[in-house]
């Protein structure tokens, strides 16, 4: 597929938003259960605010993906069948949920318990929706797996938690170590998931072949012309147009940037208490995520490409 930057930003930003919210909410829950000391309210509120900000940015990015953004509201209508439609409903719900939770928390309202639960449900639902948008396309074999869901979930949690660590270093230093530990743990788990996904995808055999695409059963079938020489939507949308080497370098880049490097920086930052290092950890991880997402799209080989191999 041709990685669209709007989608890369959308998925990574809301991932951070979701992870951040979950981290902040976990701290809240922990402290309420008395398992840790009460956090600074500013940390919870700022965390929610930042989560809302990330999610809003993601929402904005999603508009950039639409040909007709002015009609975006229509996208909420088909929730019965379409994961995209569901996401369109759940994303604002999550946004509102987190905002309400943050505000009620700040005002000390009792509603915050309820809003927190609602936001968590929306958050998890959002992970499911986002993941399913891709995982439900059964012939995009690279995506059609529960791992896609888990990956979205893990990467969102990890990056959100990294950001939460940074936030706590600024606003609630007492939690920094805990959060850093979580973030490192989540990042490591995410790496395991992502590695599993890579391993799975490397072993995939495309179900569709040029033979099944045109229905000619002969071992040697080659396209000579696709009927249009100056390109078409089909050549632009489903093709990253990059070399294999480029793809490989992006893979190594994200394997480094999204996982071990931020983990190391997290550890360094948490032990030294240097905010700048933690900020760097998030930045590096986010860039790694952008690369990961780019790769996620680029690696998916759409069967329609079988029809768009050559011109002459």
């Amino acid at each position: 597929m041709h990685p669209a930057f709007s989608l890369i930003f959308l998925t990574t930003l809301i991932g951070v938003a979701q992870g951040l919210f979950l981290a902040v909410y976990s701290i809240d829950v922990l402290s309420r259960l008395g398992l840790s000391e009460l956090p600074m309210p500013s940390f919870i509120v700022a965390g929610c605010a930042m989560s809302v900000l990330f999610a809003a940015l993601g929402l904005l990015a999603s508009f950039l993906h639409l040909g007709r953004p002015e009609r975006a509201w229509r996208a909420a209508t088909m929730w019965r069948t379409s994961w995209l439609s569901r996401e369109v409903i759940v994303l604002p719900a999550f946004l509102v949920g987190v905002a309400a939770y943050g505000v009620s928390y700040a005002t000390g309202s009792l509603w915050s318990d309820l809003f927190g639960v609602v936001a968590v449900v929306a958050c998890v639902a959002l992970f499911v929706c986002t993941g399913m948008i891709y995982a439900c396309l059964r012939f995009l074999q690279e995506w059609a797996s529960p791992l896609t869901l888990v990956n979205y979930f893990m990467l969102g949690c990890a990056s959100g938690c990294t950001f939460a660590t940074l936030l706590s270093a600024l606003l609630a230093p007492g939690y920094t170590e805990t959060l850093a530990t979580w973030a490192i743990g989540l990042t490591t788990a995410a790496l395991v998931v992502r590695a599993a996904m890579l391993a799975r995808n490397a072993r995939l055999r495309p179900k569709s072949t040029v033979q099944s695409a045109i229905g000619v059963k002969h071992p040697k079938v080659q396209q000579k012309s696709q009927g249009a020489m100056g390109g078409s939507f089909n050549t632009r949308e489903f093709n990253h147009g990059r070399t294999r080497a480029f793809l490989r370098s992006i893979k190594w880049a994200f394997l480094l940037l999204a996982f071990p490097l931020p983990a190391a920086l997290l550890w360094l930052g948490a032990t030294s208490g240097a905010v700048a290092v933690l900020a760097l950890a998030f930045a590096v991880q986010y860039v790694g995520l952008l690369a990961e997402r780019w790769f996620f799209f680029a690696q998916a080989n759409h069967p329609q490409n079988l029809y768009y191999q050559a011109i002459s």
Binding site: P69, R74, L84, F233, E237
Partner: peptide, 20 residues
């Protein structure tokens, strides 16, 4: 008149039969 140009349907078509 309803389409928002999200291209998702094109992704869902294995045949590359849709064009924006």
């Amino acid at each position: 008149d309803k389409c928002i140009g999200c291209k998702y349907c094109a992704w869902a078509c294995p045949y590359g039969a849709r064009e924006i």
